[in-house]
Nucleic acid binder design. Structure first.
Lengths: 247, 247
DNA sequence: TAAAAAATCTGACGTGGCGTCAGATAATAG
DNA sequence: CTATTATCTGACGCCACGTCAGATTTTTTA
């Protein structure tokens, strides 16, 4: 009896997981427009009403995927910030984490940005939105902690008027902005940008150097460390394509 | 006869303008969801079919607004890059242009980012998309030209491996990314970011300083120049709120 | 100026997806 | 084995999209 009870609950729970996987697959293969509740119900061999038992509307399904996405991102950031390395290398590990995320989980990145649009955001429940916000803040917090760590042990002397959070925002904006622009302007390469990844790396390095975060590396050192971090800090993730920082 | 001909054509043309104004108004006041073709037809006292004579679908109306938006942005960039000032000040003028754009034409900024999403982008005609792309590239080009100018007269010595376009991308990504994050995370201020404008200014300055673009300014000089540029280069635009760069 | 031709406008119509809900079915309790 | 509760179902009402045959207006032609 008790066994059956859990069996039923498990069935419902596992359906939710399958549902999100199916939705992700459709989204990745055919885009947002193709993701209809009818379609989802069909593919899951269930009725539309059942889907609505799990999510109050279509947008909320998206948000649920976005939550999975940010959890993945957070786990990558966690690994990066726990690396036993000097502060600046930990920061580089976060950069590597971003690159892995964007390269190997592009649909996650896509959903994360999609879900931020008012048309979608506004239709979601406060509860799930809070979930996303909290994780977002936690990700930012992890990066800010690395900055704080750098300040604490003297690798970095942040100007009085700049908080660690503001430095984090700069780096995140640079990264996020670059990948968004890249996603929507396929012609970037035609106008002199060889690789977005390369640009993001150079841009972030410039900001870190700009604030004199020690040690300042040569290009050779950067490349070497980049590969080392891919290998040692993220042994379980396939390494992102290694565009050389040097030409 | 000829007079009448032009009269009719003018009517159609002016309708298109009214249409876009009405659409902008709805969009600004009630968001994308509220912008339906029915609604547009109603407000213009015309039939739905007539709207479809102008635009093949709803998304294309958005894109048309985005084209107006980017034209505005381009005109601001034009003014900035034509200023009779040292290269680095011209670059700061572009930063001011961005701030004016985001502050005083927020709906334009919003539409520009909205239109980039695949769900909308894909449904638009190639012709109009090309229009937007071209203007986008022109805006990037204006900024790259300022970088080139700085290199040409020795204010800036760009590292071998970095093209002017890559530097432009960094600055643009930092700006665009920051404002997007700000738009979708109203809680930024709670986590230590006093003002996005301030963060963007500091971030861009850090990049410019990072590449040693001369002259390097003190905070006082930055603030002073910022106000001067608002006043002298953009006398026709209301100045953006002047958050001090210093605390 | 009047009739014919062309351009433009119109709104009813077909379509498709959203979200609901009364009734059917299955699970659990007594 | 029956009653109660939980879950599932799919037909339904609704709304907005985009179309198109026919009405209306404008332009051309004679």
């Amino acid at each position: 009896m008790n066994q059956r009870q859990t069996t039923k609950k498990q069935e419902i729970e596992s359906r939710e997981a399958t549902l999100l996987e199916t939705a992700s697959r459709i989204l990745l293969a055919e885009g947002f427009a193709a993701l209809s509740m009818e379609r989802l119900a069909d593919e899951l061999n269930t009725a539309k009403g059942t889907i609505y038992n799990h999510f109050p509307n279509r947008e909320e399904v998206l948000l649920a995927i976005a939550v999975k996405a940010i959890n993945k991102r957070q786990s990558l950031f966690d690994i990066a910030s726990l690396a036993q390395r000097p502060s600046r290398e930990r920061m580089m590990a976060v950069m590597v984490a971003c690159e892995i995320y964007v390269t190997h989980y592009p649909h996650y990145f896509h959903v994360e940005s999609l879900v931020r649009h008012a048309a979608i955001w506004e239709r979601c429940t406060e509860a799930r939105r809070a979930l996303l916000q909290k994780q977002e803040e936690r990700c930012m917090g992890l990066v800010s902690s690395i900055v704080r760590g750098g300040v604490a042990n003297g690798d970095l002397r942040l100007p009085q008027e700049i908080s660690p959070e503001e430095m984090t925002l700069s780096l995140w904006a640079l990264t996020y902005g670059s990948y968004l622009i890249n996603a929507s302007s396929p012609s970037l390469e035609e106008i002199g940008i060889k690789s977005v990844h390369r640009s993001v790396r150079l841009g972030c390095m410039c900001v870190l150097d700009g604030y004199h975060w020690q040690p300042i590396w040569t290009n050779e050192q950067r490349n070497h460390l980049f590969r080392e971090i891919c290998r040692d800090v993220f042994p379980d993730e396939p390494a992102p394509v290694d565009f050389h920082l040097l030409p």
